[in-house]
Design a protein around this nucleic acid. Structure first.
Lengths: 221, 221
DNA sequence: AAAATGGCTTGATTCAGATCAAGTCTTGCG
DNA sequence: CGCAAGACTTGATCTGAATCAAGCCATTTT
């Protein structure tokens, strides 16, 4: 920690570029950071990280190049811990190693869920599942506010903003009303049927949210 | 290790079902195991594990339910290590913890690559990238043999077998001939242009293959 | 207050990939 | 050896989602 840098970053700044060597483990202390990947114009949101969570731990551990880029969505406070020190701490302190490992395992499982989602569900189902999960994470409240821009949700879910918009509208017939940022689940049963919710996929276990990676929590309302 | 079970498993046997508690860490000693996920009839290959590699390490570490199922593709020899002992070893032996962590980080990075692939490339591009990667992994040989059934490749790549078949055929125009199991890259430049190969995505680093997770290596020919 | 910017919606159209339906070829097995 | 099962291919058709093209609305800038 003594070697770490504490930085305030303005919004919309890219703090990590994929391909660069993983010199620092990043910790989001305040704000919100998007992990994304891009090739030839195309662009995909991989996750959104919220306090207090780390990102690109895997690259540090393996001393390999970053596979994702990162940019701030808001003004954020980041802690940059030199990878060397992270690896030293892992080797020296078994408690630290255990915690780091749990974090990593949580990220991995979050990504498995995300990938299963992409492969096994179509757009409407993904959205239904996402909304149900958001609702559950704040204690099964039927109403809440979307925590990020819709375009970001669309990119995360692997669809275009146009399609997300249309899908949101069409969900009115399946138990969920979306008006601007406001979401109201009017018929949970129906929405669950649409999502084809395998409890496993969206788990009752909160690890992915605890890990702060995936999309942020909504605010109840 | 003293607590582990050593098992011979016939082909096409499901050895792990998603949702079950992670009582054992599995190690593939011989053979080939498919990790997959399914909901309501739909089915998606997530990875293929080859010797010597572990699978479902993340679930063990977190003492959480499996997120993927596993079935043997061939007659396989598996080592089942009780999760309790794995966690004990992680806590007791920092060398073990470090190695486990590297393994986990490798799996994570493999999955990041896979997900980026799904989100950023269309089917033909994914296939081109896959073939180039296979070629590179055996030392840039232009000719090789597909290591697994095409239907499995199709599922892994998130497309139907029909589509894979058509795409394979159409690649003749882009520098690659596929005839049965045999693949011959006739124009690497062209194929690379199609794949839009960002070196980052498919990496020069061999970790994903070393981890034995993803699809198996082909045989040169 | 007007103008500009960026996010969101809506409609029309297109297209990649899925589905459906045969058929062929290979492989394992009684 | 002959049959059955399963993998793969091929063609015809359909459809979910992308793309293209405006327009709308809120927020910020001038």
């Amino acid at each position: 920690m003594r070697a770490a840098y504490d930085q305030q970053i303005p919004p919309h700044v890219t703090v990590v570029s994929e391909g660069a060597p993983a010199d620092f483990l990043h910790v989001v202390v305040e704000g919100m950071v998007e992990l994304f990947a891009s090739t030839q114009g195309r662009d995909a949101t991989m996750a959104v990280v919220r306090p207090v969570s780390t990102f690109i731990l895997a690259a540090c551990v393996r001393d390999a190049p970053y596979l994702m880029s990162a940019r701030t969505l808001q003004r954020s406070r980041l802690l940059l811990v030199p990878s060397v020190n992270v690896r030293a701490a892992v080797a020296a302190d078994s408690r630290f190693a255990l915690n780091a490992m749990e974090d990593l395992a949580g990220c991995y499982r979050g990504l498995v869920r995300h990938t299963k989602n992409l492969k096994l569900r179509n757009t409407r189902e993904r959205i239904a599942a996402y909304l149900l999960r958001q609702s559950r994470l704040i204690g099964d409240a039927p109403g809440f506010t979307l925590p990020v821009e819709k375009r970001l949700i669309a990119s995360y879910m692997g669809m275009t903003p146009e399609n997300l918009s249309r899908a949101f509208k069409s969900l009115a017939a399946d138990g969920c009303k979306i008006d601007g940022q406001r979401v109201i689940i009017t018929d949970r049963e129906r929405l669950e049927a649409l999502a084809g919710l395998s409890l496993l996929l969206d788990g009752p276990d909160p690890e992915a949210s605890a890990a702060g990676v995936s999309l942020p929590l909504p605010e109840a309302s």
